[in-house]
Amino acid sequence: MINFNGTLSENNTILSIQNRGYAYGDALFETIKVVSGKILFWEDHYFRLMASMRILRMEIPMAFTMEFLEAEILKTLGVNSQLKETARVKLQMHRNEGGLYTPTTADVSFIISVKPLTENFYLLNNDFYEVDLFKDYYVSPSLLSTLKTNNKALNIVGSIYAKENNLNNCLLVNTNKHVVEALNGNVFLVKGNTIKTPPLTDGCLKGIMRTQLINIIKTLPEYQLEEDSISPFEIQKADEMFITNVITGIQPVSKYRKKSYDNAVAKLLLQKLNVKIRLG
């Protein structure tokens, strides 16, 4: 069952063809991991969503407090018998119908849907994982590119390219020819004792897991964090590369072209991440 504006329904076809999220991509979403009724990193998800809605000039209802949306998520999990399980929650916000490119309203609606997941905490995936650059189209670095909107044409075409070329993932490049992110997460490089990730000004998604790992890395005296542009040349010189998102956690990359990588730092950070979740 889904939750549409607080009403639980078994009808998965409640949206009309005039829905602005469908017609114009005038929508945002958060992908959230929930373990036994505990919403991981909920505060970060909530404030990112609220900030994104303001950037898109959506009207945020007074009722949309962190407590209200949390309760709606838990209600949806409960009716789907997922409260004591591990689940993937998708919280979508779209501007209400009306207008063409120019909306006739700033009011919004929300939809919450859930799917089961198998792992409670984050596990290191040691399977072979190969990536390459996707250079058919580029990310335009701006505030809009850091938002999690329904405009994901670049990620879709890139994912098809990856499948056609037997790749596990692709790295997206911005118009300045800097590596920005992967198709489904943020990118980190390790070189010696330096851990580097692209800055938001390069156009990467303001990832929730990215934020968690940045905070963890800052507590490790043996490593230095850099938020700076990454060139394709640097990728071939790195000791390690990994991709992050809230569902997988940390995905080590095994190979980029002729370069192979270790995963020692990814393993360390994953342990720290799971400790943080247990204590949080």
Results as ranks from 00 to 15, higher is better:
E164P: 00
I55W: 00
F4Q: 03
S140A: 11
I2K: 07
N120V: 01
Y24T: 06
T219L: 13
L147Y: 06
S16I: 11
D107F: 06
L123P: 00
L200P: 09
I230L: 14
T31R: 01
L154T: 07
I216P: 01
E67W: 03
T248D: 03
E97Y: 11
F47Q: 13
E43Y: 02
S109H: 09
N174Q: 05
N80M: 08
R20N: 05
N151A: 08
L49S: 02
G25K: 09
H45E: 10
P199V: 12
P103I: 13
N19F: 05
N263Y: 14
L144W: 09
T248G: 00
K163C: 04
K90V: 11
T76W: 02
V173F: 06
V190D: 03
I32G: 02
N245Q: 08
I214W: 04
S229E: 12
E240M: 03
L213N: 09
T31L: 07
A153P: 00
L91E: 03
K163A: 15
M58Y: 12
Y22F: 15
G21K: 11
A238M: 10
N155H: 12
N274R: 10
N215G: 01
G6R: 11
D202A: 13
I111G: 00
L124D: 00
L225A: 05
V139H: 09
G280E: 15
I216V: 14
F110W: 13
S16Y: 09
T104W: 00
N3Q: 04
A106R: 14
L171H: 04
E227C: 10
I217L: 07
T248M: 12
N168C: 07
I214R: 02
G185E: 07
A182W: 06
S81H: 13
A182H: 06
N150E: 01
G21D: 10
Y101N: 09
L147F: 09
K115G: 05
E97T: 14
V173L: 13
P252E: 05
V35T: 15
S142K: 06
C170H: 02
T194D: 01
G192L: 10
A162Q: 06
E130N: 05
C204D: 01
Q92Y: 12
Y161H: 11
G99I: 09
T201R: 14
I112T: 02
L268P: 01
K38A: 05
L171M: 12
F4L: 15
V157S: 09
L56D: 02
T175E: 12
L40P: 00
Y46A: 06
Y129D: 04
S254Q: 03
R20P: 02
